[in-house]
């Protein structure tokens, strides 16, 4: 590992600052901060959150511990979080899938947007339209032309049955006026749906960009189901520029962020927001996280995060209803 002299200087400066300022912070934080994280420890975003945690712990002078509470599409993490004290020592990584999507599908979940206070938006993962490598189409426009010429109902992989990528994918197919048959898979966007493309079960699938590394030469991304191109792969055209605007803006992403629990003292929330904001917009993080993981990081301010939460809930509601009505 290469350690920059600058990094050492930085760490030293932060440490000295932290040490000299210690009395002023006596009330908070005086013990380690835990982030409840919904995805497994080996997940690339888990690596990112660990790195962010390390940098924030330098800011705050207390360790930041990542607790991976996985399962039930991220809802377990949120359900676990709300039973903790609202003291700023327990934070939770809130993702659109669990906080908004799952809540719409299952109103019985014990939490809602009101249980959480935004600390920062951290991730924004764009979704792709993906086919097997030998598919005749090479971009989204060609794909839609091909689909219409085929004149049959396409088998379309949509990730998990009650997932946000499913809603985004179906919205795209609706905009493109392609007749499709949604096929859900367990295990999200990066597993069995790709196998489905490879063994001919599916005609096309919603997927995510980094899969191209694992399945190089076996699949190809036709484009992003977004309104604009994205730094994760600037070569990939957006659906909008190919003539099929999904029109969901920032809501067309699998976004994930960090939230404190409602009722956390305002001054603590402000300290958290400042610390995470500084790390997420700072150079140290950009240096440490390169490639695909780095490109999925997108800082969103607390105010805009709150707006995103509310917008997503309104935008996704009718689509969830459609899915529930269709029965599969």
């Amino acid at each position: 590992m290469n350690i920059h002299p600058k990094t050492i200087l930085c760490v030293a400066a932060v440490t000295i600052a932290a040490l000299s300022a210690a009395p002023a912070f006596a009330e908070w934080p005086e013990k380690p901060i835990t982030i409840i994280y919904p995805w497994p420890a080996a997940d690339p975003t888990s690596v990112a959150i660990r790195t962010i945690g390390e940098l924030v712990s330098e800011e705050l002078g207390q360790p930041v511990v990542i607790n991976n509470v996985t399962g039930a599409g991220g809802t377990k993490a949120l359900a676990t979080a709300i039973s903790a004290e609202a003291d700023g020592y327990t934070l939770v990584s809130n993702w659109v899938a669990a906080q908004v999507g799952a809540k719409l599908f299952n109103p019985d979940l014990p939490y809602s947007n009101d249980n959480f206070v935004p600390v920062a938006g951290i991730f924004a993962i764009p979704f792709t339209l993906t086919v097997a490598a030998d598919h005749p189409a090479n971009d989204i426009a060609e794909f839609v032309d091909w689909a219409k010429a085929e004149g049959r109902t396409l088998n379309f992989g949509v990730c998990a049955p009650q997932s946000v990528p499913r809603l985004i994918g179906e919205q795209f197919m609706t905009v493109a006026e392609v007749s499709y048959n949604p096929i859900p898979f367990n295990g999200g966007c990066g597993g069995d749906n790709v196998t489905g493309l490879l063994n001919g079960t599916l005609d096309a699938s919603v997927a995510v960009v980094p899969l191209i590394n694992a399945f190089a030469g076996q699949i190809k991304h036709l484009g992003l189901i977004t309104d604009e191109r994205h730094p994760i792969d600037p070569e990939l055209p957006s659906a909008a520029e190919q003539g099929y605007p999904v029109g969901w803006g920032d809501n067309a992403f699998g976004w994930g962020g960090l939230a404190a629990l409602s009722g956390t003292p305002d001054d603590v929330v402000e300290k958290l927001q400042a610390a995470f904001g500084a790390v997420l917009t700072g150079d140290a993080l950009a240096e440490k996280l390169e490639g695909n993981v780095g490109a999925m990081i997108k800082y969103v301010s607390p105010e805009d995060s709150q707006k995103l939460w509310d917008e997503s809930a309104v935008l996704l509601a009718p689509h969830v209803e459609n899915v529930l009505k269709s029965g599969n």
Partner: peptide, 19 residues
């Protein structure tokens, strides 16, 4: 949760049993 439609089965409304 039903693996295809996501409907709850025999969970008695308990999020714990959803998984």
């Amino acid at each position: 949760l039903d693996p295809v439609s996501g409907v709850q089965r025999f969970t008695f409304g308990s999020p714990y049993l959803d998984a």
